[in-house]
Structures are given as structure tokens and as C-alpha cells.
Design a binder for these strands. Structure first.
Lengths: 144, 144
DNA sequence: GTAACTGCAAAATATTTGCATCCTT
DNA sequence: AAGGATGCAAATATTTTGCAGTTAC
């Protein structure tokens, strides 16, 4: 994983620093999307809140992660699996938010559907967020 | 419109006050979704920022408006056209954000598509936000 | 060594809460 | 008159910015 992390950072001409490595590691090991707050929590008291802001911002700019809009205030970030390049995302997959465990995951294999728009509307990007119960929570039927 | 506004407020057992009437009026006359900031601007210096917060909150609780998630920080609100009742929204339509004029509109006539999810995923709500060029901006081809 | 990154402090913004006053019903 | 809504002040929370010190290359 170390190698992968370094590779991602170098490919995007970002210096390899411990903060960036740590944050990238969090994204790689958690399969779910993370909010700014999640990152602060999971990283422990390691680094400054400001660093998290700046790191997330540069990751988004470089196309390493993308943001997922949610109904409430929070913005979630998830790794771009595809060949996103600077300022050019290809996140045409759908996002799934589990109401039970709260995890948000990218369903990479499911493309956004074609939407039939009214006359004279032209779509450039379609964002789909599905709420429901995820695979893991479905299995363990027992409620908390 | 006055009558309509009063009717909506009364139906939801909210007192008919000038602040609420003004905000509801803004939603009714603008066909687009509004952010907290939009409302403050469009309402002039009429009332307090806090009142806007509280009014929007109670409107959402009552099901008069619903929130639309967007990729950036902002939360947008739009009127519920359907028979939304308290705590029970039926906003199964899609949202369209125009990249040119910035307006966000509810496409009431277009239902959210069926999404084929992986095994053991269960969807309870599907949220679709389409970015693109809206009808109005499409017509006037001349760029700004 | 230089440029880029980080952490701290502080500024700027945004949101929430308490309370006294005013408006609806 | 009573309860709810508003406005103000202030407490919190969030995000941004400047700058000096540190780290990566």
C-alpha cells in the first residue's frame, strides 16, 4: 500500500508528506466515503484541522478524490477509482448511503442511468445517490 | 397568491406571519430552488438571518419544502409540489442544475429511475441531480 | 538550497441558543 | 390572554488566510 500511496501522490505532482500519506491511507483502507470530520477522528490527533482542509482540497483538484453531495450539511469524499486527471473527473457511478451503518460507498459497477429530459435540456453530468440498506447490514438482520 | 400562502401555512398549523409569508412567496414566485443565502438576498434587509434559519427548518419539518443536495457546500430548498405531509416527503422527482444560469429546478414530471443494485442492497430513496444547460439558456445561444 | 507543506494564531463565516418582546390566534 | 414567532446578543462551529518554521526533493 505504501508504494501505491507514493505512486498516487507522485503521479499528481504532490510532495509525499506524512499527512497526505495518512489521509490517502484512510481512503484506501476504508472502502467508504469519508467526511472531513471522519478524517479528523480516524487520524487521531495527528494533524491540524487546517491541514485536512488543504489536503482534501488539493486531492479534489488533482482528481484523486471526488465529493459526494448528501442531503444534510455534510460533504463526503471518496477515492476516484477511474482515470481521473486534474480537473477532469469521470465519476459516473452511483453512490449508496446506508441508513443503518451510515457508510457511503461508491457502486463502481453501476453506471448512472440515462435520463430522458424535457425538450431543450442538455445534461452534462448525472449524479445519483441512493439511500437504503447496504449488503452488510442486510445480512445481519438483528437490529441493534 | 396571498390566499395560497395563507392556505399552506394554515394547513401546516403554522402561524401566518409576515416573515413566513415573504419566504413562501419567494419560493412560489421563483420557480428555482433557493439557498439560505438567496433568500436573505432576495428578501432584502427585511428580517433576521436567524428567522430565515428557523423558518426554513420548520418548513422542511412540515414538508412544505425539501432540501436538494449539491456538490458544493450549499444546501438548496425547493417547494414540495406533491402531497408532502409532516415528516413524509414524496420528492421522487429529479433536480436539474443549470451550469449557465445557476438555477436549480425540480423536474416534477420526471421520476427517478429504477436502479439495479447489487445483491442484498435495498433502496429506500433515490436522489438524482442532473447538471447541464436548461431550457432557457439553451434558447439564447449567445454566450454572456 | 529552494519550493512546497504544515501548524499555529487569528480572521471571516456560518449556525445555534437563550431570552425578552411582539404578533397571531 | 396565551402561545408561538421574531430579533437581538452571544455562544458555537466551520472554513479561510497569513506567516513562520519544517520537510521533501
Amino acid at each position: 500500500m505504501e508504494a501505491q500511496i507514493n505512486s498516487i501522490l507522485k503521479r499528481n505532482s504532490l510532495s509525499v508528506t506524512s499527512g497526505r500519506k495518512k489521509i490517502l491511507e484512510l481512503f484506501l483502507e476504508n472502502n467508504a466515503a469519508l467526511s472531513h470530520g471522519d478524517i479528523e477522528k480516524k487520524a487521531g490527533e495527528k494533524f491540524d484541522r487546517v491541514t485536512v482542509y488543504r489536503t482534501l482540497q488539493s486531492f479534489v483538484e488533482k482528481g484523486i478524490i471526488h465529493s459526494i453531495p448528501t442531503a444534510d450539511n455534510s460533504i463526503l469524499y471518496a477515492l476516484c477509482k477511474d482515470n481521473c486527471s486534474e480537473g477532469h473527473h469521470h465519476d459516473n457511478h452511483i453512490h449508496f448511503i446506508c441508513s443503518k451503518c451510515g457508510d457511503t460507498t461508491c457502486l463502481e459497477n453501476i453506471s448512472t442511468p440515462m435520463i430522458k429530459l424535457p425538450d431543450n435540456f442538455v445534461a452534462t453530468k448525472v449524479e445519483v445517490v441512493v439511500n437504503g440498506i447496504c449488503k452488510n447490514c442486510q445480512k445481519k438482520k438483528a437490529p441493534m
